[in-house]
Design a protein around this nucleic acid. Sequence first.
DNA 1: ACTATGCCCTGGGTGC
DNA 2: TGCACCCAGGGCATAG
Length: 273
Amino acid sequence: MPELPEVETIRRDLAPLLVGRSIARVRIHPGAERLAVTDAPRELERALTGRRVDALDRHGKYLLARLDDGRTWVMHLRMTGSLVHTAADTTAARFERARVDLDDGNSLRLNDMRKFATWHLVAEAREAMRRTGPDALSDEFSVAWLRAALARRSAPVKAALLDQKVAAGVGNIYADEACWIAGIDPRTPADELGPRRVARLHAAIRETLEQSLGDRGSSFSDYRDGLGAEGLHHVNVHVFRREGQACGRCGGTVVKTRVAARGTHFCRGCQRR
DNA sequence: ACTATGCCCTGGGTGC
DNA sequence: TGCACCCAGGGCATAG
């Protein structure tokens, strides 16, 4: 599942290949109509055709392509989406849902087994991000911000971390990893964490995201970078999908439970309430 | 404003 | 081998 490090890796891969290029043709394939969440698929295809990409940005898990008509093409890969740059004559992958042919003989393929990915156009990127808080790697995501956000929640701290209003870009993998690094039981009510533990959690969020970014993301299942390659970070995680294995810090057992209706992994030995 | 639940979607895994 | 289930979960809508 592409979270912040994965989406940022894709952005860095694709930016030099997309910026300055114009879109020659767009095809949303039959059966994938729900990719276009606001406009009808044919309208979105038409609106993108002929546009030049002026910049490729990211906020949380959203990719934001700034177009030469001033609008922003907002893309979210959700669970199983990937966005891969290939030659135009490359055979479609099994789960290709859409393709964008560029003016240089290359194309961008959206592969998405489960069809949760979304594309839409907005006049202002800000309007599409209004339900989303500060990006977890930005300066706006400060210790003070996190402390204030957690202080008004009684839900488990993991549920708070998954809320994109709190920390945009953090998903299930890095929420578990951040709790482990900080030594916090993910089930702990958010408002019970003291200032020192919140500060540790904030540092842990930054640490796990940056480590994964350095490894070009985690490929537990479908994630691929902008060129179709897997990330490397899934072999370096501490708890995510390591249930039954020994904790690398205390030797305790990593267990799996459910928190906020999500599979949640933590060490029974060294993560405290 | 927060919290909990169901929905979307489909391949892969499990149990019989 | 076949087949019916169950699971994975990001973001949104909805109800409380």
